[in-house]
Simulated assay, not measured.
Amino acid sequence: MDPAQMPRLQEIHANLVDRLQEAKNQGWLGEVAAIETTMAAARQKLEAMRERATQPSTVHLGMPDIRSTVGRITPEP
């Protein structure tokens, strides 16, 4: 999920709201059910995008500390 696509998904969801109202007005029950299912999926995806947008996009893994091993001589058996 690319958060940059959120405006496009919001536009799609708004369009679905309009289509749902039209389908209800026309009595297209099968279309109403299909639109409601699609709206639920779009809503879930928008929620996931919003949640992901609040999380940091990078993870700091730190740097290994090699100072303790540099210059160390291992005793020979």
Results as ranks from 00 to 15, higher is better:
Met1Phe: 05
Asp2Met: 01
Asp2Tyr: 03
Pro3Leu: 10
Pro3Phe: 02
Ala4Gly: 10
Ala4Glu: 11
Gln5Trp: 03
Gln5Tyr: 01
Gln5Val: 08
Leu9Val: 04
Gln10Lys: 08
Glu11Met: 02
Glu11Asp: 11
Ile12Val: 15
Ile12Gly: 01
His13Cys: 12
His13Asp: 05
His13Met: 15
Ala14Tyr: 08
Ala14Asp: 13
Asn15Pro: 00
Leu16Arg: 09
Leu16Gly: 10
Leu16Tyr: 03
Val17Thr: 14
Val17Glu: 02
Val17Leu: 05
Asp18Pro: 01
Arg19Asp: 06
Arg19Ile: 07
Leu20Ser: 09
Leu20Gln: 01
Gln21Tyr: 04
Gln21Arg: 10
Gln21Cys: 04
Glu22Thr: 10
Lys24Val: 04
Lys24Gly: 04
Lys24Ile: 11
Asn25Glu: 12
Asn25Trp: 06
Gln26Gly: 04
Gly27Thr: 03
Trp28Ala: 09
Leu29Gly: 07
Leu29His: 02
Gly30Thr: 05
Gly30Asp: 11
Glu31Phe: 02
Ala33Lys: 12
Ala33Gln: 07
Ala34Pro: 05
Ala34Ser: 06
Ala34Tyr: 00
Ile35Leu: 10
Glu36Gln: 15
Glu36Ile: 11
Glu36Cys: 07
Thr37Ile: 03
Thr37Val: 00
Thr37Ser: 12
Thr37Arg: 02
Thr38Asp: 06
Thr38Cys: 02
Met39Lys: 14
Ala40Pro: 05
Ala41Gln: 12
Ala41Lys: 10
Ala42Asp: 14
Arg43Thr: 09
Arg43Phe: 13
Gln44Ser: 08
Gln44Glu: 04
Lys45Gly: 11
Lys45Val: 07
Glu47Phe: 00
Ala48Arg: 08
Met49Tyr: 00
Arg50Glu: 13
Glu51Asn: 03
Glu51Leu: 09
Ala53Trp: 06
Ala53Met: 07
Thr54Val: 12
Pro56Asp: 15
Pro56Gly: 06
Pro56Ala: 06
Pro56Ser: 08
His60Arg: 09
Gly62Arg: 00
Gly62Phe: 00
Gly62His: 02
Gly62Asp: 05
Gly62Thr: 02
Met63Trp: 00
Met63Arg: 03
Pro64Asn: 06
Asp65Met: 07
Asp65Lys: 10
Asp65Glu: 01
Ile66Gly: 08
Arg67Ser: 15
Arg67Gln: 12
Ser68Trp: 11
Thr69Pro: 02
Thr69Arg: 12
Thr69Ile: 15
Val70Ala: 11
Val70Glu: 15
Val70Lys: 14
Val70Ile: 15
Val70Ser: 15
Gly71Leu: 14
Ile73Asn: 10
Ile73His: 14
Pro75His: 05
Pro75Lys: 12
Glu76Ala: 13
Pro77Glu: 14
Pro77Met: 11
